[in-house]
Structures are given as structure tokens and as C-alpha cells.
Amino acid sequence: MSFEKPAVVIDSGSFNIKAGFACDNHPVSMFRTLVGRPNFLKGGYGREYYDVYIGDEAAAEVMDLEVNHPVVRGNIENWDNMEMIWHHLFYRELKVAPEDRAVILACGATSTMEEKIKCCEIFFETLNCPALCIQSQPVLSMYGSGTTTGICVDIGYDTTDIVPIFEGGMVKYAHLQTGIAGFQISKYLKKTLEERDLLKNNLSLEVIEDIKKQYLYATTNCAMSINKKIYKLPSGEEIDVSNETFMGAEFIFQPDLLDDNGKKCVSLHDAVITATLKCDAELRLELYNAIVTCGGMATVPGINERLQMEIQDNIKKSVTILTSTEPYAVAWLGGATFAGLSDAKSLWIQKKQFEDYGEKIIKNKFM
């Protein structure tokens, strides 16, 4: 399906939302999936005028705001706030009118049909988009890596999804979640630094996320000495985070080390192997030859090498991990690629079709 103007590609993640135009090779806008309102209102919205903070503005004022994450574990839970974020995205970030642009929307691996129907209602009835295509993030991540068959290993902020993909379709019965993601690691960092009384008055989500982003690393040799890591707090004080940054990534491969209130978690490599074994035997070799790592936590140095080593040690066969310099944007890039495929034209819904057929066409297109 051809459009007069490049389609808008939106990947609404639990931590960040990525958006841009299908003609580009990188998202134009990326900001926190966050909405904040003044906490002095205490939920009494609508009684007086107040400012609503969206994205990074909300993150910067988090101590003075009542914040909400509309996307939780890949699913949209607060539709009013999500609609505000999309509106902000078009008019303030991309600076385009939604009625002029077709949209490709990346949804979570566990997204329900009800969620897809609600997305269509907002994009067609509220934003007046001319056409919409909804595809799962794991499928688009495979397109973004140049293949249509493999295993998507999406290590996000609050969920890690292992999803086998066969010829552009999810093998849903083989989908697994490990129970360990960026949120659990952030929680561990915060807890240990608080116990050591290192954060003091500088405790904030941004400090924790900055430590995680800058210093976390995975190693292929757990017996090696821990690399010394020093972090400079906003106050100027320097703290030693060597042990925390080593253990943070180690939990992904040894979840038993993490005390998370008895929650049962699975190591990343075990989840990949189990998901593969759930698929047909003749498909497994092809899956192992295209393991795609993506999501914010996939940026951790050494994580791909460690994952490859652990899988190969267990199955006694070589595997191939398709890496990217920007794994957090792989699903978005896949959406941009998908928008240009002539074979994908049958998967778009036009506004006129939605008005004529409603939920029926959504179920036919986006099952």
C-alpha cells in the first residue's frame, strides 16, 4: 500500500516510546512513556487547572508529581494517559498532523485483541489517521534484523520475552517470559545502595537508571575479578558501584541469586533453549541460527557473548546471535522496513474499512 507521505512508525515500550518516519533509518523522537500530574491534587483531577507533564519532563519532576506508566509489561493499562502521549508525540515531537499520516504501531508480545481494537478506535476516531497497521514487537524486531524466522529475545524494562518467529508469524505456544528484566535490576541497585547508605539525598530513578546504563556489564568468566566502577553522584560525591554493576547483569543468567520475594525466574539461556524445544524439531536449527536480541537491556556490554556461550555450552552446537548497535530501536526499525514491503499491503486497515466493518476487520487483519 503506497501513501502520499511516509508512514509514522511508533513503538510504545514500557520505559521509552520510539517514533519516527518510515523513510528514516532511526527514530526521530524517543522519550519516557510517562505521564505526571501535580501530586498535591491527590487524584482530584478536573476541579482546578493543572499542568500535565509528559515523557522526559515528567521524569525530571518526578519528586513533585504523581506519575503513571501507561504501558506495563508490554500492555497498555491506562488508555487516557496513552492517548495523551500519542497526541503529544504527533503535535509536539514529530510536528505532523495524524490525519495526514498512516501509522504502524508496534504492540507487545502479549497484546490482546481487545487492546488492538482500542488502539484502532483511538487512531481512527480520535486522531483520525487514514490507515493503521498493528504488528507485534518481536515480529518487527525480526524484520529489523533482516530475517523473518528466528528467536526474538526482547530484554525490556519490566518484561523479558522469548518468542520464536516463523516466516513473520509468532509461534505463540512457545512464548516464554523469564521474570527478570530491567526493573528487577533497578530495584536491586536501589536496595543495595540504600543499604550501604550511598545514595542519601540523591536517591532518584534517574540516578539508578544512569548507573545501570553506563556501568552494567556481563562477563563470560564469572571467576574473573570484578571491574572497579566509580560513579559520580549529582552532588559530586563518588561512590563505588563495582559489585552492583557486576551482579546486576549476572542475575539475568543466574536468577537464583536474586531474592525477589520467592518469585520463580528462569535464566535467559534456559528460556531460549526451552522456547526452541517447544517448536518442531526441523525448525530448531533455523531458529538457533537467528537469535535476535533487542530491548533496552540488550545494550549491556557482553550480554550477547555471554548468551551465546551459555546456549552453546548447553546444546553443544554453535548458534548465531544477530546483534545491532542500537538494540533498543530494532523493533522500530523493523516497522520502518515493514512499511515499505509490498507484500504487507493486505495487513493495513484503512479508516473507511474500519468505519464499514468495525471490530470484524480488526480481528481478520490482526489475529
Results as ranks from 00 to 15, higher is better:
residue 219 T to H: 05
residue 244 E to M: 02
residue 242 S to N: 05
residue 242 S to H: 12
residue 220 T to C: 14
residue 263 K to W: 02
residue 240 D to L: 07
residue 257 L to A: 03
residue 218 A to V: 11
residue 247 M to Q: 14
residue 248 G to L: 00
residue 255 P to N: 00
residue 235 S to R: 11
residue 259 D to R: 12
residue 250 E to N: 09
residue 240 D to R: 13
residue 264 K to H: 08
residue 252 I to A: 11
residue 220 T to K: 02
residue 264 K to R: 13
residue 266 V to K: 08
residue 221 N to H: 09
residue 257 L to P: 01
residue 238 E to M: 02
residue 225 S to A: 14
residue 258 L to S: 03
residue 261 N to I: 10
residue 263 K to M: 10
residue 252 I to P: 07
residue 256 D to Q: 14
residue 258 L to N: 03
residue 230 I to T: 03
residue 235 S to W: 04
residue 242 S to L: 09
residue 228 K to W: 10
residue 258 L to P: 06
residue 220 T to A: 06
residue 225 S to D: 13
residue 264 K to Q: 09
residue 239 I to T: 00
residue 257 L to S: 02
residue 223 A to T: 06
residue 248 G to Y: 00
residue 257 L to W: 06
residue 249 A to L: 03
residue 243 N to T: 12
residue 266 V to L: 15
residue 263 K to Q: 12
residue 265 C to S: 14
residue 245 T to F: 08
residue 220 T to I: 15
residue 252 I to T: 03
residue 227 N to T: 04
residue 224 M to G: 11
residue 238 E to D: 01
residue 228 K to C: 12
residue 250 E to A: 07
residue 246 F to S: 06
residue 221 N to K: 10
residue 227 N to Q: 05
residue 258 L to F: 12
residue 225 S to G: 15
residue 252 I to H: 04
residue 231 Y to Q: 09
residue 228 K to D: 11
residue 245 T to C: 15
